[in-house]
């Protein structure tokens, strides 16, 4: 398998007035394989969201390079084959479901007919037919995040960056959306970089898990997830699952200083 995305010695520190700058990411190197589902897990505040924002170009790295299919996308803001799903959904409240999904196509200059058609496809894919003309405030949290998925997918990104997309949802909705995400991933052929702080979620979804050390974020360990696909809810109670979960937990615990 070839590398879809290469992170080479990324570093980021935030200035803090008179105090020394806060190092959030240091010497971060990672290869993300084409079409794999990669979970990034670490304690909260470890810099994993910052990592995602660096990849999407929302913040600039102090040093290091980001290569996508070998081409340099370091410092390129948004777009360029990257689609991002945000933790707090962050839909545009003044746009309907359709309007939100069409946004990325609109600013990319796609024609009206094409926008419409593609939006309809992805709205159907995330199961929101009938809610095309609803505003975000008329939708539940789970439905809002479905719009968030469709909005990111509509620009046909090669890599989907997901920043704790289920973090703001209740457990049941979370479980349902996890399965739907896996379905979408299997039909849409995407490379997924999925940031989470839930160990169970990371194992259930991913091919590989990157465990991150807390600030400054560095790769602590990369774990291959041994379960076959399609996956079902029941693997969560398998002994291997629980063992893997325990293993990751002890890795995380070492790093956590309360």
């Amino acid at each position: 398998m070839t590398a879809k995305l290469e992170l080479k010695r990324l570093a980021k520190a935030f200035p803090r007035g008179s105090e020394p700058p806060l190092e959030v990411v240091r010497d971060f190197t990672l290869e993300i394989r084409n079409l794999e589902f990669l979970s990034v897990i670490g304690p909260s505040g470890c810099g994993k969201s910052t990592l995602l924002r660096l990849i999407d170009g929302l913040i600039l790295a102090d040093s290091g390079r980001i290569l996508m299919d070998g081409r340099d996308v370091t410092g390129v803001v948004g777009g360029e084959g990257r689609g991002m799903v945000f933790q707090s959904f962050d839909l545009f409240p003044w746009r309907t479901t359709r309007g939100n999904v069409e946004f990325g196509l609109e600013v990319a200059g796609a024609g009206k007919a094409e926008r419409r058609e593609r939006a309809e496809h992805y709205i159907r894919l995330v199961g929101l037919e009938g809610f095309e003309d609803a505003y975000p405030h008329e939708l539940s949290g789970g439905m809002q995040q479905r719009v968030g998925f469709a909005r990111a997918l509509a620009i046909r990104p090669e890599i989907l960056l997901m920043d704790e997309p289920f973090g703001a949802l209740d457990v049941q909705t979370r479980d349902i959306l996890q399965d739907e995400l896996l379905n979408i991933w299997s039909t849409e052929q995407k490379t997924v970089l999925f940031v989470t702080h839930s160990i169970e979620e990371a194992i259930y979804l991913a091919d590989r898990i990157v465990v991150i050390s807390p600030r400054p974020a560095r790769v602590e360990r990369i774990i291959e997830v041994p379960f076959d696909r399609p996956r079902h809810e029941r693997i969560k109670s398998l002994p291997e699952f629980l063992q893997l979960r325990q293993e990751i937990w002890s890795l995380l615990k070492e790093g956590v200083k309360i």
Binding site: D56, L58, G78, G79, E80, G83, D90, F92, A108, I155
Partner: peptide
């Protein structure tokens, strides 16, 4: 955050 979304879409 909403401005970040806009930037994320280039």
């Amino acid at each position: 955050k909403i401005l970040d979304v806009a930037r994320s879409f280039g």
